[in-house]
Design a protein around this nucleic acid. Sequence first.
DNA 1: CCTATATGGTATCGAGTCGATACGACAGTC
DNA 2: GACTGTCGTATCGACTCGATACCATATAGG
Lengths: 191, 191
Amino acid sequence: MEAMETSETERLAALIERLGRLIYAQAHAENLLPVHWETLRFLHRANRFSRSPAALAAYLGLTKGTVSQTLNTLINKGLLEKRTHPKDRRSRQLALTARGNQLLEQDPLSQLCSTLHGLDTARRSALVQDLEQVLSGSLIAQGRTPFGQCKECRYFAKTHRAGQPHYCELLGEPLSEFDGLQICQEQQPAA
Amino acid sequence: MEAMETSETERLAALIERLGRLIYAQAHAENLLPVHWETLRFLHRANRFSRSPAALAAYLGLTKGTVSQTLNTLINKGLLEKRTHPKDRRSRQLALTARGNQLLEQDPLSQLCSTLHGLDTARRSALVQDLEQVLSGSLIAQGRTPFGQCKECRYFAKTHRAGQPHYCELLGEPLSEFDGLQICQEQQPAA
DNA sequence: CCTATATGGTATCGAGTCGATACGACAGTC
DNA sequence: GACTGTCGTATCGACTCGATACCATATAGG
């Protein structure tokens, strides 16, 4: 029974799992389900190249069919809008409605934030760094998309173009300061 | 739009949420659902005073009714057994079957473990400590049960009794070395 | 001893996830 | 124009999950 002597890695994994369940249990607030909150948060953080059903499915690790249904429920609740993409008529552009953005201000995840606020600043920075490493490591090991920040991407150029301070060398699009902070489907961490 | 400048706490919360989703997406393996794996893990780690439907419901943050159904599906799959508690005929004692224990060796969570193994040892210890603080802080803030380790409890006494090395001063029961490592419904962190 | 009350568990219902499967619409390539 | 891959949708069945109502048993107070 080598399971008796729970190693530190196992305890750590159990901790992360349990924190996940904690968030999950809180996320039934406001008559929504966990996946709904995750969708709203994603659309708030994702850049304009990533606000599509396909990107959301990749982000959540769900099938396209499942995500399609979830989006419909959110649209019926008036939290979300869906339009055909002007340049690729197969694709759909997603956007939060005013009510969607408003609801996001009562995000149950902010309860966790206030607990995190009590941590020592230096240790919190180390925590972010470590968890980021663990997360992207695991995602890449599974062949999934990391969805990192735009400005941390190898294609992010600090080149002025069309009145914007930055530029994406992959998609050939100008980027604002704000764009650089959002997460992107295509992001590949800089070397 | 103060949301544009995502603070470090918000990024940290998002990271934890995303790690939770990562585990969730993996947990559809072996024809089980996430809550099934969590149940199996709980029964593996919980001491004999905590292997009941009520304790599991408190652990998961779900209602008794929901847990009751989930347990039935696991029993139907032959992974779990349920007996009436000999001293309280309202209560049920849960136990993993041989197949249940066997399945637990293919726990998809072990994929995360291997990633965690790559972390620096010192930082990993700090990580465990910090996350433990965050988790128990959040749980207590919500009025929920921390489910800490028996040996970290204020009622854990290093008193020999009935041939066992330790003793629970709350329940008046002798405790083995192994008992001290398991998690308990009644645990209250020592001062 | 008997009754109130609290606690542990179950049964049923409806909304909704979720994977699987099959399908339709459209883009890009030859 | 046909081929092929990608994006999205519709439908089905298993199951979660909260809500509600309910039963069985323990415990406390008179």
